[in-house]
Every structure is written in C-alpha cells, then in structure tokens.
C-alpha cells in the first residue's frame, strides 16, 4: 500500500490555479523528485501535502486515511514534515531551540538531538548561535535537522539548494545521503536536474500545474525530462494530443 497518495489535487492562489488535478502515489522508502520550471506548481503541491496550503479539490491520503482536512501541525504529528522553501528558521531562537521545539511532537523514532547532530555535524558548534546569524548552508542544515526532529515518515524537501553556494549544496546533500541510507521516504523539489535524477528513485515533471511526465528515475533520460520541463512534447510518449 502506498504511504502517501495525492488524488486529483487542485490548489489555487486566489484566481490563479497553481496545481491542476495532480495524482501520484508513493510507497515507503521511495524518493520522488519533483522537477519543473518556476511557477509549475511544485512548491504549492508540497505545501498542500504538508497542510500549509489549503487545497480546493481532491484528496491527500496518508497511510490510507484521508487527511485533506487535517491541520498542518496535526499532519506533522502523523509523520509528514516539510522543509519549506527559504528555510524559515525561527531567526530569534538558537539552533538548539529550533531543533528542540520541533522535537516536542513526541513522535518516537530514530531522530533526536544527538542523531541529528551526528547526521549534520556542522551544527554541533552552532547550537547556541542565533539561527538568524547563520550562513545559508548552515541554515539549510538546521532546517532539515528541525524537520527530522519530528521523526517524519515522509520528508518533503523544497528547493534545499536554493541560494546556497555549490560547496554548501554538496555538504547538505552529503548529509542527506545519510538520511536516505536510513530508509527515508522523501518528496523533493530540486532545480538541478542531474542531481535530482541521481538521488531519486522516481521523477515527476510538472508543467503549468500538471504532472506531465512521471516514471522511474532509472528509465529517465535528461532529454526526456528536459522536453517535458519545457513542454516541448506532450507526455505519455506516443499518445498524440490534437
């Protein structure tokens, strides 16, 4: 059975429909990379799954249960955690407080302050620092650590490399590899196509609010994804659209 499923999901920003009839299902341990141009609806889709954005139609299923009407905080306690775009740490609080405040969901699991620090060793000397004073890479590590503190069953990562230096991106992804090795289920939004193809087990490409290409990462070629990315060819190769 799928751990996370989205059925015919619609989400709007006012008059603008950002997500149109999106469906997919994700089994435990799978890593889905969402790719697509800016404004394709990736962030809105992630936020809708996490409960941060109200959906206008469709369903979000978690462990078989319809959670469409559940508050974001309650979804976190069920095991869905989002690392939001722009990191959104609590700038006035220390790194340690950012982590512990998220650890109070009392979900049991592998992650606690100590294991998060093992996975992100760069955070250890920063624990007492005000999180607003950290560099982008440090903030991103803290934001992922904060999400892990809730012991999620599904981790949603929104553009974790956005605005980071290449070195910092590598560091963040190195640590993420450790998280993935531990058997995490992840949906990530990533602009870097080759990185996404390397890390993910599955890839979905969004265009104008729809998923236009979806499949196993091993079946994907850069060319196919790129075509879908720019909407150069219709999806479902072969079925011509008039």
């Amino acid at each position: 059975m799928s751990l996370l499923a989205v059925e015919q999901l619609d989400a709007r920003h006012g008059l603008l429909q950002a997500v149109r009839g999106v469906s997919f299902a994700l089994a435990e341990g799978e890593i889905l990379a969402l790719v697509g141009a800016n404004g394709a609806g990736k962030t809105t889709l992630l936020r809708s799954i996490s409960g941060a954005h109200r959906i206008s139609a469709g369903r979000v299923l978690f462990d078989g249960a319809d959670i469409s009407a559940v508050r974001a905080s309650a979804r976190v306690r069920m095991g869905i955690a989002l690392v939001p775009e722009g990191r959104r740490l609590f700038a006035g609080m220390t790194v340690e407080e950012n982590l512990t405040v998220a650890g109070e969901t009392r979900r049991r699991g592998h992650w606690n302050l100590e294991t998060v620090l093992e996975a992100f060793p760069m955070l250890r000397p920063l624990l007492r620092r005000r999180s607003g004073d950290l560099s982008g890479g440090q903030q991103q590590a803290a934001a992922i650590g904060r999400a892990l503190m809730t012991n999620p069953r599904v981790l949603l990562l929104d553009e974790v490399s956005l605005g980071l230096s290449p070195v910092a991106v590598n560091m963040v992804y190195e640590s993420l590899q450790g998280v993935i090795a531990g058997g995490a289920t992840i949906v990530l939004v990533e602009q870097d196509l080759s990185r996404a193809l390397r890390i993910a087990t599955r890839v979905a490409c969004m265009l104008e609010g729809r998923i236009v290409l979806e499949g196993k990462a091993s079946d994907m070629t850069r060319e196919r994804v790129t075509e879908a990315y720019f909407g150069l060819r219709r999806p479902d190769a072969g079925s011509a659209v008039s």
Partner: peptide, 19 residues
C-alpha cells in the same frame, strides 16, 4: 519555546508540529 516560535512565524510553527 512553542510560544516564541509561534510569535515569530505561526505558519512555520505549524510545520514543526506546533498547533
């Protein structure tokens, strides 16, 4: 801590499990 987190950014507080 939950109060401070919420005071700073209520939407993000929700995302770390704070009602």
């Amino acid at each position: 801590r939950a109060i401070r987190a919420t005071a700073e950014d209520a939407d993000t507080a929700e995302l770390v499990g704070i009602d």
